[in-house]
């Protein structure tokens, strides 16, 4: 290696989570859920023994999109909603990198929803972490595409008239090959999901429910109640608060008593069930699923579009000559 100095020394020893922090002061509001997410991200990098230069975080605009400034790897803080497109170009140009996209509910599901949809369906090998606080924070409190219907905000004083997007439903339907949900307060599960996401090859979508203490404090309080959430474990029944999720005779999800013959065993490769789980929302009367909903292996985009070795100058000269020769015969 031709890079003597501190970095060489740093990469040779085991790095701790602190090694992945930057000198930048973290500027989220006190009590913001982003702090917990950032801490788990640092911890994950240490846990997987990440080489700093091999990770890149691309973000858009919003509170969450400040994330790259706080992680000591490569980072690009882009423009509103376009991070998935920028990350796509980065990954095809430089396939050895591990590319993370940090976005929010406004950035990813409003102004950038189209890019997100296409990145997920193309199975671009990027890991999208969508911090969902169900409100616009950086622009100071307007409703977001995930805000509850009826929510009064500065831009909806009489209550939000729009129905919210279901982020997981969007991701599964778009064709993400890894779909998961976590919450800022459950750091253990967040850590597990981060580690699983890091090694997945293909489009990762992780919705992280994150409390905004300023503009929508407590929006996820109902999920603290064990009746409000179901923690999914692959191969295990979908149990919660003495109940279990199952499919009723009409094929719809319903809660049953534990041990009921209609209880569902979680299978992360079952896309149909993942779709049903992903569709659970405020009005379903069912617990919100957490953990990895869906996971599949399929070719990632950069593998499909990769060029076969670029041309050097003599190679390009041959290419030009060949085109003239061919054209002389068959234009």
């Amino acid at each position: 290696m031709n890079n003597p100095g501190t970095e060489l020394a740093a990469t040779e020893r085991t790095l701790s989570r602190k090694d992945y922090q930057t000198d930048n002061d973290v500027r989220w509001c006190p009590g913001c859920g982003d702090y917990a997410i950032l801490a788990q991200f640092h911890k994950m990098l240490a846990a997987i023994g990440a080489r700093k230069e091999e990770h890149v975080i691309v973000s858009g605009i919003g509170c969450s999109s400040r994330f790259p400034y706080y992680v000591d790897c490569y980072g690009l803080h882009g423009i509103h909603g376009r991070a998935p497109a920028i990350a796509t170009g980065l990954k095809v140009a430089n396939p050895d990198l591990t590319v993370w996209v940090v976005t929010g509910d406004g950035d990813g599901l409003s102004i950038g929803a189209s890019h997100l949809l296409h990145a997920l369906r193309r199975n671009v090998d990027i890991k999208v972490l969508l911090f969902n606080n169900r409100i616009y924070g950086l622009t100071k409190g307007q409703f977001s595409p995930t805000s509850p219907r009826g929510l009064p905000t500065r831009s909806s004083p009489a209550g939000n008239t729009d129905d919210p997007v279901r982020p997981l439903d969007f991701a599964v339907t778009a064709g993400a090959s890894f779909v998961a949900r976590a919450i800022d307060t459950d750091t253990t599960r967040l850590q597990d999901i981060f580690i699983a996401a890091a090694s997945h090859r293909g489009s990762v979508f992780v919705e992280i429910l994150q409390n905004c203490p300023i503009f929508l404090d407590g929006v996820f309080d109902a999920l603290r109640d064990e009746r409000g959430r179901v923690d999914l474990v692959d191969g295990e029944p979908m149990e919660f608060a003495g109940k279990v999720l199952g499919r009723n005779e009409r094929g719809r999800l319903e809660s049953f008593d534990t041990g009921h013959h209609r209880a569902l065993i979680h299978d992360v490769t079952d896309r149909d069930t993942a779709r049903q789980l992903a569709a659970i929302d405020d009005s379903s009367g069912l617990p919100f699923p957490f953990g990895i909903l869906y996971r599949e292996e399929r070719a990632a985009q950069h593998e499909a579009v990769a060029g076969k070795g670029r041309l050097d100058i003599p190679g390009m000269q041959r290419r030009l000559s060949a085109s003239s020769r061919v054209r002389r015969q068959t234009p």
Binding site: V58, L76, G78, R82, P84, A85, I86, A87, T88, G89, L90, K91, V92, A93, N94, L97, S114, H115, L117, H118, V305, A306, G307, K308, G309, R310, L311, G315, M316, R319
Partner: peptide, 24 residues
């Protein structure tokens, strides 16, 4: 001949991909 050409979902994504590639 080593060219990676992507048909993007829109004009904004097209330049985003190009810029991301340059960054890379």
């Amino acid at each position: 001949n080593g060219v990676v050409a992507i048909q993007a979902e829109d004009e904004i994504a097209a330049i985003g991909m190009a810029l991301g590639a340059s960054y890379g």
